[in-house]
Amino acid sequence: MVVIFRVLIYPGIGFILFLAFTYDWLYRKILAKFQLRIGPQVAGHKGVLQSLADFIKTSTKEEIIPDKSHKVIFEYLPIFSPLPLLLALFFIPINSEYAIINNQGDLYAILFLISLFAAIQITLGWASGNNYAMIGASRSGLQLVSFGIPLVFASITSVMLAGSFSFSDIVIYQRDNNWVIWGVGFLAFCIFLITSLAEMEKVPFDTPEAETEIAGGWTVEYSGRKYAFIILSELLKEVLMVGLTVTLFLGGPTGPTFGMDGIVKKILFTIYFLLKSSAVIFILSLLSASLARLKVSQITEGTWSLLTPISIMSVILIIII
């Protein structure tokens, strides 16, 4: 009974979906604040339900299947696209040091699931049989290749400090010692933020789904329920990257507990998690607001000649210290 509650409602699927819709609203609201705007306002109180409205509206629209598409993949793969991300989110500790799934190879599993989602993106783009989608898919693959190595090296930092691949060990290490971000991990934190922006396909790195040049990229042919699932998977990806940043560098959900235990401690930990992730979203939207979309050549050049060497250097730095 407790297990079912944990998986389905809190901190499982229900809570994760709540986080997905709230984080997207927070991101848009903060971005609007930076640009002297108000942001979503009419859907719910101050527009909290904006992402939910987008999701419901898209899922009730007509579905169009183009002739040139690969029928089976086009029909069924979008429905499964949020699943790897949902599974990956079960590894993130939200309300205690231990997540729903915790074992020795958490980070391996997460990196594998992120790559799996990128593979799904490429397949979806290919299956729609559209030239724009194909260009978007190839750009998405390019980003996977470019940002994979800095992502791994940046997340390796906290693994090396904690001496374990398990997220619970990393969180416990940060609870007992300092957070990874204070000290040698700061460089890795910056690299991880940039790569997570790229993984989320937000503004400076949104070449795979650039609306103005390739009309939506790999999502171009999807409409109705299929597009709603794609939106959901993008929202879940945002939660996953923010949650990973919090877990690896900001000490996870831990914080002062004031000697409490049991349910109160869990609620406190959830609040700490939300606060820390809001801070991460603030920095991410600051980065998005300050930069325009980069060219594909700039992205690859920047990652291979700048980001990758810096990430390797930060790992070497930690080995020396």
């Binding site: 609007a32 640009q35 108000i38 527009g47 409205a53 169009i64 650039a210 009309a215 999807y222």
Partner: peptide, 21 residues
Amino acid sequence: APKLDAERYGVKLVGSPRHAD
């Protein structure tokens, strides 16, 4: 743009006709 900010009403400019209303 910021002066009238249509995003208040959930308006979003999309690139593909498949996503539009």
